[in-house]
């Protein structure tokens, strides 16, 4: 298998898994436009074993999708020999480099801020009610931060491939 084919596979995976990840974020954004604190009564009433399995699968899917997106993105930059210039925002590679940095922030936000708090909100990890309410606010802000960050990210990703004249 030649590297050009691997590069194409990475691009394909990058798009598919980005849709899985960010699509999930957008669905949450549309479903919950405003913050509502965690409500034990309604949340625990609706909770069933089947729902728990579904939530685990859903959250695992987009969390691991983010890793595929990040690795394939970095892989494509490496294959082209652009990685160092992109990450140091050097010259024309600063455009895709800004996208790469925003994407990296989004992935770190998801894994290091959102997920540890979300586990408690969803009851995957036991926590007292007060803590779950506090975590629901942090989770909401972290999730919407990723929504906000995805807007410039997509701008730079598209511009890196098709709109470099915008920067000249």
């Amino acid at each position: 298998m030649d590297m050009a084919f691997v590069d194409h596979l990475m691009r394909w995976f990058h798009l598919i898994f980005a849709l899985v990840w960010v699509g999930h974020n957008y669905a949450s954004f549309v479903q919950h436009p405003r913050y509502k604190p965690f409500n034990e009564e309604t949340s625990e009433q609706a909770r069933t074993a089947a729902l728990e399995v579904r939530m685990q699968r859903e959250h695992g899917t987009f969390r691991y999708a983010s890793i595929v997106v990040w690795c394939s993105g970095m892989g494509m930059l490496w294959y082209r020999g652009w990685l160092a210039d992109a990450l140091t925002l050097n010259g024309a590679h600063a455009v895709i480099g800004m996208g790469a940095w925003i994407g990296t922030l989004m992935m770190l936000n998801l894994w290091l801020i959102m997920w540890p708090h979300q586990k408690k909100v969803l009851g995957f990890e036991p926590a007292p009610l007060e803590e779950r309410v506090r975590c629901s606010r942090i989770t909401f802000l972290a999730s919407r931060t990723n929504t906000i960050l995805s807007i410039p990210l997509l701008f730079f990703m598209a511009a890196g491939g098709h709109g470099l004249q915008l920067f000249m």
Partner: peptide, 30 residues
């Protein structure tokens, strides 16, 4: 404290404003 995240419009506006600011930053680097 109310943050842009607290409304749909605020989220979209923050994303658009951030895009514009970062665009101007990156333009100086290219």
């Amino acid at each position: 404290m109310k943050l842009p995240h607290d409304s749909m419009q605020g989220t979209l506006l923050a994303g658009t404003a951030l895009t514009l600011v970062l665009y101007l930053v990156v333009r100086t680097l290219v």
